[in-house]
Simulated assay, not measured.
Amino acid sequence: MQAVTDADFETEVLKSDKPVLVDFWAEWCGPCRQVAPILDEIQAAHGDKITFVKMNVDENPVTPAQYRVTGIPTLNVYQNGEVVKQIVGAKPKAALLNELSDFIG
């Protein structure tokens, strides 16, 4: 998954033509490491419909604070510059596919 930063968040995420799922994560977060391979699988199957990126909250504190990301992993889906879905915590693949069905269906 491509990494985004506070500096390029607006360009890569908010101005994207298609929905963007942002995985807010950190190196020390166990559940983040559990959800990463699941997101890779979903991206492989549905990457044409929704863009997947990740943001390290330790290296990029501004954006997570702006979107009130208090727990990680948090998955925010942005469409037309707005948060249209927020998923907090590690979830199994079936649950994530269900949550994202509006964007990948």
Rank of each mutant, 00 (worst) to 15 (best):
G30A: 06
L97A: 10
R68S: 14
P61F: 00
T74D: 08
R68W: 04
H46W: 13
V22A: 02
V53K: 00
V20N: 07
G105T: 10
A65L: 13
L39E: 08
D6P: 11
I87S: 13
F103N: 02
N60I: 05
Q79V: 02
S101R: 14
R33H: 14
A65R: 14
K18P: 10
Q43F: 13
E27C: 06
E82P: 03
A65D: 06
I87P: 09
G81S: 05
W25L: 05
A94E: 15
M1C: 03
K91A: 10
L75F: 00
D6H: 14
Q34G: 03
Q34Y: 11
G30H: 12
G105Q: 13
F9K: 06
C32Y: 00
D102Q: 11
R68Y: 06
P61W: 07
L14S: 01
M1D: 12
V4C: 02
F52E: 05
D8T: 01
E59A: 15
W28C: 10
W28Y: 04
W25I: 07
S16D: 10
I104P: 02
D6F: 07
K18R: 11
V62N: 04
A26G: 04
A3M: 10
W25E: 14
A94N: 15
L39T: 04
P31W: 03
M55V: 07
Q66K: 15
P64S: 09
W28A: 12
A7N: 14
L97F: 13
A65Y: 09
A95C: 03
T11I: 13
L75Q: 11
D17N: 13
N80F: 06
C29M: 06
E10F: 02
N60Q: 06
D48A: 15
R68G: 06
I50P: 06
L97D: 05
P73H: 05
E41H: 13
D48M: 08
D6K: 11
